[in-house]
């Protein structure tokens, strides 16, 4: 039995300690906003925040979470920067199929939490681990800049 803090709530999961956090969120706790894309930390669809840092949840065993707090896409709107990014994504029509966007938004928020005015190089560095097959990169870049400039 593991007890973890997700979006400010204590949640319990009766799983094997090896189980990646991704599958605990999705299959056990029903938080399906965090997406499975590759299983090997290559695509970023499963990005969550662990104590504010972006982490690929497909490679994070639930036993390694410990007392750290997890934020998922379902909870990111509660932070001012999270809400700004979500709004910028809608205002600029960033989203197409949307499947990767949970991870894109989590990576973008983490970037902006640490760098309030990222340049193109910083955006490349923070976002190149998140794949989008619809090809929304142009607008993701604009969306980050929009959110950085007050939304």
């Amino acid at each position: 039995m593991f007890e973890i803090s997700i979006n400010g709530n204590r949640r319990q999961a009766q799983v094997d300690g090896d189980t990646p956090l991704l599958w605990v969120l999705r299959d056990v706790l029903g938080l399906t906003g965090t997406k499975f894309g590759c299983g090997i930390a290559q695509c970023g669809a499963c990005t969550v925040h662990v104590d504010g840092s972006p982490v690929r949840s497909c490679r994070l065993p639930v036993s390694a979470v410990g007392a750290r707090s997890i934020t998922t896409i379902e909870g990111i709107g509660a932070s001012p920067i999270g809400a700004k990014v979500q709004k910028a994504w809608l205002d600029l029509e960033v989203i197409q199929c949307g499947y990767c966007q949970s991870g894109q938004i989590m990576s973008a928020v983490a970037l902006l939490e640490g760098n309030s005015n990222p340049d193109d190089e910083a955006i490349d560095a923070a976002m190149s681990g998140n794949i989008c097959r619809c090809g929304t990169y142009v607008r993701i870049r604009e969306g980050i800049k929009r959110a950085a400039n007050g939304g």
Partner: peptide, 21 residues
């Protein structure tokens, strides 16, 4: 016109086939 399908794609609430439970 703003897209009609995207808001639930910003907060994880949209259920794709893979999210069927």
């Amino acid at each position: 016109h703003r897209r009609l399908d995207t808001r639930p794609k910003t907060d994880g609430s949209l259920r794709y086939g893979i999210d069927a439970m």
